[in-house]
Structures are given as structure tokens and as C-alpha cells.
């Protein structure tokens, strides 16, 4: 069964100063419910959050490596984290993601199949 990566694109400012503590907890509970459902089917392999701040981008130009800051947390959209799951097929993976709360909060999920080794 192939593995899939849900790349979570985030707007770091999606939740502003007005969200209440209770609402924050409710959002976490929705994510946990989604993850819990997949875990119960033994389809959830993991999920990790990437730090919003302090990233660096490395390139090589003119024969020399170059390291610059970014992407910035101020950017409109950053890759915020990922989940990896197991699914029967790409279509099945899509189906599993359709009710992901990430979509409810205006953010994007990029779904990629992992090449089998």
C-alpha cells in the first residue's frame, strides 16, 4: 500500500488576535479527531509541524554555496508541516483528506504520493 504525504500550506496569520482560547482548543480537537480516525484504521504514519521562523534557503551560485534567510513567517503562505498516511490509491488518499480540518480554515493541502523503494 503506497504512502502519501499531506503537505500543509499555512497562512501563519490565519488565526488572529481574536481567536479565543476555547476556539483554539476546539480547532486542535478537530485535527485530533481526523488524526485519530486515520490512526484507528492504521493509516496514520505521523505528522510534524515545521517551525515558522528561522528557516534558511541554501543554493549554490557562481561555484559558491549561498545561504539566505527564508522563507519568512511573514510570508503569505509557508509550508507549515505534514502528515504521512497510508492509502489504497491516490483517489483513496484524496478521499481521506477531503474532511481534513486544515481545509476548513482556508489553508491548502498538497497531496503527494511517496515513491515506493
Amino acid at each position: 500500500m503506497p504512502n502519501y504525504m499531506l503537505i500543509l500550506h499555512d497562512d501563519p496569520k490565519a488565526f488572529g488576535a481574536n481567536i479565543t482560547p476555547a476556539q483554539m482548543q476546539a480547532v486542535i480537537a478537530e485535527y485530533q479527531a481526523w488524526a485519530g480516525k486515520l490512526a484507528a484504521q492504521e493509516r496514520l504514519l505521523g505528522g510534524e509541524k515545521l517551525k515558522d521562523e528561522g528557516g534558511r534557503v541554501m543554493t549554490r551560485s557562481g561555484g559558491k554555496p549561498r545561504v539566505v534567510d527564508g522563507p519568512y513567517a511573514e510570508a503569505k503562505e509557508v509550508i507549515g508541516g505534514y502528515f504521512t498516511i497510508r492509502a489504497e490509491s491516490y483517489d483513496h488518499a484524496v478521499e481521506l483528506c477531503l474532511d481534513h480540518p486544515h481545509l476548513k480554515y482556508g489553508a491548502r493541502i498538497e497531496l503527494r504520493e511517496v515513491e515506493p523503494t
Binding site: L8, I19, I28, G47, E48, G81
Partner: peptide, 11 residues
């Protein structure tokens, strides 16, 4: 807010 961002993915 940080907890929200991290815990929703990592638990």
C-alpha cells in the same frame, strides 16, 4: 497560538 499551530499537527 503557537500551541495551536504545533499541537494540531503533532498532538
Amino acid at each position: 497560538l503557537r500551541a495551536l499551530a504545533v499541537w494540531r499537527v503533532q498532538g
